[in-house]
């Protein structure tokens, strides 16, 4: 028996969310009196792998295969299923991110394991296995009972604190065969942003809406974001107008994010927008309409002209840095 956690790597490196995931897996394993095995697919060096042991992974497996050069959900599922069976894993944990959403459903069918998707807390109980999950785009939370022998959870990002628990586990690298699930995905082109904080990784996000009035007014917003080490985002009308790139659109049909701090500038806070940002730990609203719904979701608010307030915020943050 074990808890298996799939720790994705990005060109051989982990992120903070990888360690949060291991911390979470370790806490679940504690509730079940069992141990955590961490699995990463694709070459990661021993030093990087060893970091997973700082957060409670008692066994660290790096599965590598020469045939795996692109992300193929069938081939990856095959590897994870084989290792889950070999480890006797009863709970398998993914991040609720791009790869977690691609792999968890396939693995669910292969292992006949029910999924709790987007959980944001430890299980409410182990017997029956009950998890707390977001539903109705954040307007309700369900107590979901998973009745199958094996369970799969995907953890909402930024929902569990890092908990240090060094194990000294020594990573093992294994060569895997993907004969049973051959790669059928061909990647013909790839575009990658570099040197920018990714919206889904950012701990602070500064986001602009129609209240910014024109794409020419984004200067101070971008400056504030850069001073705070934050990513920039926008509301749907702004991306639809082409004022900002589509990658920045946060909201129900855009990106779902859960940073520690979300600063909404000139965003009224339509239900669809809030659905994408309501899991943020703190929301700051800056809007000239005191009745805007964003103030209901915010802990801190300033009613006023965003374009006048932004430069003052920039100055205040510069003051901090001195």
């Amino acid at each position: 028996m074990s808890v298996l956690v799939y720790t994705e790597n990005w060109d051989g490196l982990f992120k903070k969310q990888s360690f949060e995931l291991v911390s979470y897996a370790s806490a679940v394993a504690g509730m079940m009196n069992t141990k955590v095995t961490a699995l990463s697919i694709g070459k990661v060096d021993a030093e990087e792998l060893g970091k997973l042991g700082n957060w409670g992974a008692e066994k660290i497996i790096n599965a590598v295969s020469d045939e795996l050069t692109v992300f193929d959900s069938q081939a990856y599922t095959g590897i994870i299923a084989d290792i889950a069976r070999a480890e006797g894993s009863k709970v398998i944990i993914f991040s609720n991110n791009i790869s977690g959403k691609a792999l968890a459903p396939r693995l669910s069918v292969r292992l006949k394991a029910g999924i709790g998707a987007g959980v944001s807390k430890l299980p409410l109980s182990i017997e029956p296995f009950t998890v707390y999950k977001r539903t109705y785009s954040g307007n309700a939370f369900a107590h979901l009972v998973i009745n199958s022998d094996v369970k799969i959870l995907t953890l909402a990002q930024n929902s569990f604190d890092l908990t240090e628990k060094p194990t000294g586990a020594v990573p093992e690298t294994i060569n895997v065969s993907i004969d049973s699930s051959p790669v059928r995905t061909v990647v013909t082109d790839r575009v990658q942003q570099t040197g920018k904080i990714l919206l889904t990784d950012a701990e602070i996000v500064v986001s602009g809406g129609r209240g910014m009035k024109s794409p020419d007014n984004w200067g101070p917003l971008v400056e504030l974001a850069s001073l705070l080490n934050a990513a920039t985002a926008c509301s749907r009308p702004v991306s639809d107008e082409g004022w900002r790139p589509h990658e920045e659109h946060t909201g129900q049909t855009g990106k779902m994010i859960a940073p520690n701090l979300y600063i909404a500038v000139g965003i009224s806070g339509a239900t669809q927008h809030l659905a994408g940002v309501s899991s943020s730990k703190y929301i700051v609203a800056i809007n000239n309409d005191k009745d805007a719904p964003i103030f209901e979701a915010a802990q801190y608010g300033i009613v006023g002209d965003a374009l006048k307030i932004l430069p003052k915020l920039v100055d205040a943050v510069k003051g901090l840095k001195k």
């Binding site: 692109v70 992300f71 995905t185 061909v186 990647v187 082109d189 575009v191 990658q192 990784d201």
Partner: peptide, 8 residues
């Protein structure tokens, strides 16, 4: 993909 896109 994280921070980019692929043609598949």
């Amino acid at each position: 993909i994280d921070g980019g896109r692929e043609t598949v």
